[in-house]
Structures are given as structure tokens and as C-alpha cells.
């Protein structure tokens, strides 16, 4: 066991000769401050800003461009998405009104009503699914207002509404305005 004693003595002497008492504190302090500063580096900030403040990295902020249609269609809180359950086509190469290239819009849809905050009216919204390529996987939005259980299938949004399209593979969902939900009194 002599060799272990020698080794220990040698290495601890070397350590004592080559380092000051304060150097450990210095290095430890540098590591702490440096670690905390990493998110401030330009790399981290570039990654955060590429989402444009949006809900999904790489998807920039959008607007419908239509007066009376407020909000960002790439965000889940856009007014038309009040009853949606799925991936937003706005984040998948399509828009809130149209399917991404290579997919087909299902004619059979589920229909809900959403309150437009701009004019305070209820609009009838058709959530046409886009079908034909694998699921988009971006901007999942699940708000389910007035969603009904599966035994009331006509307003259940867990159903795969691609059943009317030639392919039943779900890609993403749109939210198309069909009209104002008018009262019989008006």
C-alpha cells in the first residue's frame, strides 16, 4: 500500500504548490455566472424570436387581413377556433380557410358557433378537416366549446371528420365562416 500513500502525498503536494487557496472559489464563481449567462447569448435569443411570438417555433405571426376578423390565425386563441380540436392548418402550409398543398378538404364537417369579439355576433363555423397526408403535428389546439360526447356524433369533435374525403388520414383543421347565426326574431 506504500505506492498509494506516495501517490496521495505527491498529488496533494502538487495541488498545493500549483493552486492558490482562492482559485477554487474563482473558478466555481465563473461557472455559476457563466451558466446563468448562456440564455442571454445571441444563439438562445435567435431561437426564441424565430417563433415570432407565435405558439409554435418557426411559425410567424399572421393576420387574416379582413376587417372585422381580429386575431392571429396561427394562434389557438383566434376567435374562430373556439370549438376546434386538431392541428391548425395555418401552421401546416395552409390557412384558416384552406388546406395545405397535397391534401384534400373533407366535405363532411363538424359545425359550431363562435363569438366574434369584434362585432359581438355569433358566427357559424365549419371545421373542415384536411386529409391525405400524415398528421401535421404543429400548433395543436383543443378548445372544444360545445363539444358533445360521441353518442351525439354530429357535434363530437373527436370523430375523424375525414370520413367524407378520399383518404381518411387526418392532416390538419380549418375554421371556415359559413355565416352569422341569425335569430328568428331578427
Amino acid at each position: 500500500m506504500k505506492w498509494l500513500d506516495k501517490l496521495t502525498i505527491k498529488s496533494s503536494r502538487r495541488l498545493a504548490q500549483n493552486s492558490s487557496r482562492r482559485s477554487f472559489i474563482t473558478r466555481f464563481g465563473t461557472a455559476l455566472v457563466g451558466g446563468a449567462a448562456i440564455p442571454l447569448l445571441p444563439v438562445a435569443r435567435a431561437s426564441a424570436s424565430s417563433s415570432g411570438g407565435g405558439m409554435y417555433p418557426g411559425v410567424a405571426a399572421q393576420e387574416s387581413g379582413v376587417k372585422g376578423d381580429p386575431g392571429d390565425p396561427s394562434q389557438c386563441d383566434y376567435w374562430r377556433y373556439c370549438a376546434i380540436d386538431g392541428f391548425l392548418c395555418s401552421c401546416c402550409g395552409g390557412t384558416q380557410n384552406s388546406c395545405p398543398p397535397g391534401t384534400e378538404m373533407s366535405p363532411i364537417t363538424w359545425i359550431g358557433t363562435c363569438l366574434n369579439p369584434e362585432d359581438g355576433k355569433n358566427y357559424i363555423i365549419s371545421y373542415n378537416d384536411c386529409c391525405g397526408t400524415s398528421s401535421c403535428g404543429r400548433c395543436l389546439c383543443n378548445r372544444n366549446e360545445r363539444d358533445t360526447p360521441i353518442y351525439r356524433a354530429q357535434t363530437n369533435n373527436d370523430t375523424n371528420w375525414c370520413l367524407g374525403a378520399s383518404s381518411t388520414v387526418y392532416t390538419c383543421s380549418t375554421a371556415i365562416v359559413l355565416g352569422v347565426a341569425t335569430d328568428s326574431a331578427s
Binding site: 363532411i108 364537417t109 363538424w110 359545425i111 359550431g112 358557433t113 357559424i124 365549419s126 354530429q154 357535434t155 359559413l178 355565416g179 347565426a181 341569425t182
Partner: peptide, 9 residues
């Protein structure tokens, strides 16, 4: 409107 909401889908 009722047709649109309940049947048209």
C-alpha cells in the same frame, strides 16, 4: 341557421 348548425355538417 338550425339546419346549418345541426344538419349541414
Amino acid at each position: 341557421t338550425n339546419y346549418m348548425i345541426n344538419c349541414q355538417g
